[in-house]
Write a protein that binds this DNA or RNA. Sequence first.
DNA 1: TTCTCTACTGTGAACGCTCACAGAAGCATG
DNA 2: CATGCTTCTGTGAGCGTTCACAGTAGAGAA
Lengths: 343, 343
Amino acid sequence: MTMSNTGGRRKPPTIHDVARVAGVSRGTVSRVLNGGHYVSPAAQEAVNAAIRKTGYVVNRHARSLITGRSDSIGFLLTEPQEKLFEDPNFNVLLRGCTQALAAHDIPLLLMVAGTEDERRRIMRYITAGHVDGVLLVSSHSGDPVAEQLRDAGVPLVQCGKPMGLGSKVSYVAADDRDGARDMVRHLLSLGRRHVGVVTGPLDTPGGVDRLAGYKEVLTEAGVEIDERLIVSGDYSRASGEAGAERLLERAPDMDAVFVASDLMAQGALTALRRAGRRVPEDVAVGGFDDSTAATESVPALTTIRQPYDRISNEMVRVLLAQIGGEDPAAVILPTELVLRDST
Amino acid sequence: MTMSNTGGRRKPPTIHDVARVAGVSRGTVSRVLNGGHYVSPAAQEAVNAAIRKTGYVVNRHARSLITGRSDSIGFLLTEPQEKLFEDPNFNVLLRGCTQALAAHDIPLLLMVAGTEDERRRIMRYITAGHVDGVLLVSSHSGDPVAEQLRDAGVPLVQCGKPMGLGSKVSYVAADDRDGARDMVRHLLSLGRRHVGVVTGPLDTPGGVDRLAGYKEVLTEAGVEIDERLIVSGDYSRASGEAGAERLLERAPDMDAVFVASDLMAQGALTALRRAGRRVPEDVAVGGFDDSTAATESVPALTTIRQPYDRISNEMVRVLLAQIGGEDPAAVILPTELVLRDST
DNA sequence: TTCTCTACTGTGAACGCTCACAGAAGCATG
DNA sequence: CATGCTTCTGTGAGCGTTCACAGTAGAGAA
């Protein structure tokens, strides 16, 4: 007479069971589980065999209860929700972080703070110690969440350079300024001299740095900076379209434009097409990000590749280091010019 | 002389602290926390006040240790990783599930099983009871993961109809067949009679059902089914492009095409443009999904809207019900025809 | 009065693990 | 031979909850 297995989950084996099977004590099993120092090779072996035999998996709740660590980390997105859907980079980042954490056997908790209500609940959850650290993604980068978390003593790494420089918060970012420089240099090298720019939001470091790179290269090349050729956007498709329209209106002789995100560049292409300009013959267009939008556009966008795979890896590395007691760190990664059909 | 706060996190208050402040016992606090039955109004009040005052948040690890529940659920994606980046619907689904779960105060663990190795680790994690249930997204829907989880007694809801009908697995899906019918009827109503189709993968129910809907409407309308007008794709942009190319080659008189995903439809637009066909004048194009790809295309795609917000809500609802002891359930949601510029 | 029933409250035990400590065994040193 | 050191092992306590149980108080019925 055997019990039927169907339906209910059977109770999983505990550290006790493993100890019994291996013929050792709980303590020894625990030591094997946590690095195996001060354990004889024989015991080590016996315990591992018993783990395999019983199919034991550590109960993380019991462990966390005593260690105070949760051995899980939060991926926090504080964005109006449309952003999540619009930004193709987000996926890449999320996937990268999941993978990097999986290598450490650390689960990722996804938290989206769209509304004020969600924000409060999430903050309570985090500060209650239910995650060991937070990977923060938020583009309106004066985000109070970062400071709140830092003040609560929660290890934190932000994606992208934060606004308040004084705040000691770790971050990982691409080199926006240098990327912009590369792109504008490239446009100049094509012989274009009336180079417009649609910037990102100028209350974010990314927006500011990309504009700074643009100005720097023009000055360096002896091209006078023309305020008519500078308009600002907010990284959305629509703002790219509107921005390009305004540029054409103000400076019809524009022969190239650096658009500070691929999504905006897509919008700019639409506006240029509507105005009867050929790309790249009449106007060369340069984007930023190398997102999926860049390859899907017609023509495909010349753009600046942000190394999102490396960014996610670095974010995880820096966060784990910080949880391990190290000081906050800033990492800036190089970008790369990707040539396609729009220039 | 006060201790500095900076740096370390202070120890959070426990249920003991709350009990002391409220002047009641642990048991009473616990009862308030779990629904408040058999608690006097006065005690109720005192406990709530004490919770506010102390800033108490329940320690989920301690709770889980004794209840056996984890009060968290897993969002499992078993896909080759490119899919994650390509599919704009994935974001919508993920966001929807996060939100629906947040309403129940349940954290979502994101798990991506790209490699065989990841798959094994994740299965061990899940079957060890570290999540109470799983939301499964996988397009190659003969996925063994579903059966494995079901056999392990893990509550499970799949997104999209699973292949093996015999397996008693919950799922939530859009009405693919009916959506396809609507689209093809629409194309016929425009006076088109040479309607091609680029199907989804025919080893998936979605692919099969959309094709079935197509055939059904044609037959119903007395239009003979022409095998030259049927090619199959795999939902990727590239396969849509190749598919449309093959259709034009085999049936140059094609005046409409139903493409079983927006992403493929984008590819089809590229192929049609290259072949010198105007859309929608020469060839009307209908997509499927109403993803962001549909509005970003030029021209914007007429498509079939899948109610992803409702799908995610239903997935969560069905999963929680199943965790609560109810039987597996299948939910099929209606689609909607969205008219844009491509037809 | 005495009993029963209901509404409420407190208490000890347990969940599965890690940590600190105590102790044993082996070996070299005084 | 005692002493110290290193390497290894077992044991009790406790992490913060929930749960089952016992118990109290008050109301109504006999």
